[in-house]
Design a protein around this nucleic acid. Structure first.
Length: 109
DNA sequence: ATTCTTACA
DNA sequence: TGTAAGGA
């Protein structure tokens, strides 16, 4: 059927993406990367607006999607939206990206 | 050194 | 929200 050839450039991109979805960082890194204070990140967490990877872990662990959500919420907040509204918009905006990432994770495991 | 929770300014 | 205390 549709046998597709894949060049090395695309292969490298796939490698990068697979690596990206596997990266896990602690709250300190997230704060540095996003510019959102740890205090706020923990607050959004307890409010249920963001969901760290492994809740059984000693420390909160964040993946690329978590960081993306945090940045998005930050931007929407700057635009004047309520935390609740911002979080809601982020859920909608991340829905599709989430599907793709979930598929990539399942493939690489 | 880094994160965590609780609590107070 | 920021920051300090005290334990993990």
């Amino acid at each position: 059927m549709g046998e597709k050839k894949i060049n090395t450039a695309d292969m490298n991109i796939l490698t990068d993406v697979n690596f990206l979805v596997s990266v896990i960082v602690a709250i300190g890194e997230v704060a540095n990367i996003t510019g959102v204070p740890q205090r706020k990140i923990r607050y959004w967490d307890e409010k249920g607006y963001i969901e760290p990877v492994d809740k059984t872990a000693t420390y909160r662990q964040y993946d690329y999607l978590n960081i993306k959500r945090i940045v998005l919420i930050k931007e929407l907040l700057d635009e004047g939206f309520t935390l609740e509204t911002a979080a809601k918009k982020v859920v909608e905006r991340c829905a599709k990206v989430e599907e793709v990432f979930q598929r990539l994770k399942n493939q690489s495991s």
